[in-house]
């Protein structure tokens, strides 16, 4: 492996680490502002929503099988299943949908 490639990897890893590490090191005290507390409370749900839709529809390379997987995830979540079960069932449902689509074609 040449030096330039190592340098690329060092820059990638260094910047990515700093972005993650600095806020965690700097904000050691509990934030008092009600707005900031509420904002940070909502951040994970906002991130997850924005990352899931519309990206999930492209996750399998086929909108139909992705929709089937997403629907399966919603249904199992409604029945209170755990993360792992929901994730595996979504994949299983998408896989079956892929097979069926393959047969129809």
């Amino acid at each position: 492996m040449n030096t330039r490639l190592l340098l690329y990897i060092a820059v990638m890893a260094g910047v990515t680490y700093l972005v993650r590490m600095l806020p965690l090191m700097v904000f050691r005290r509990k934030i008092k502002s009600q707005f900031m507390q509420s904002f940070l409370y909502y951040v994970p749900y906002a991130v997850l929503g924005a990352m899931t839709i519309p990206a999930v529809f492209y996750a399998t390379g086929n909108v139909i099988s992705a929709s089937v997987g997403l629907a399966a995830a919603f249904i199992l979540t409604f029945f209170g299943r755990s993360l792992l079960i929901v994730a595996l069932t979504a994949s299983g449902a998408a896989f079956i949908a892929e097979l069926i689509i393959g047969w129809i074609k």
Binding site: P44, G49, T60, N62, L70, L76, T77, L83, A90
Partner: peptide, 18 residues
Amino acid sequence: AALGIAIYGMFVAIFVPA
């Protein structure tokens, strides 16, 4: 391809109940 959706299934299982 089907495994690509697993992570989104997890996301759904986190934000939907909340």
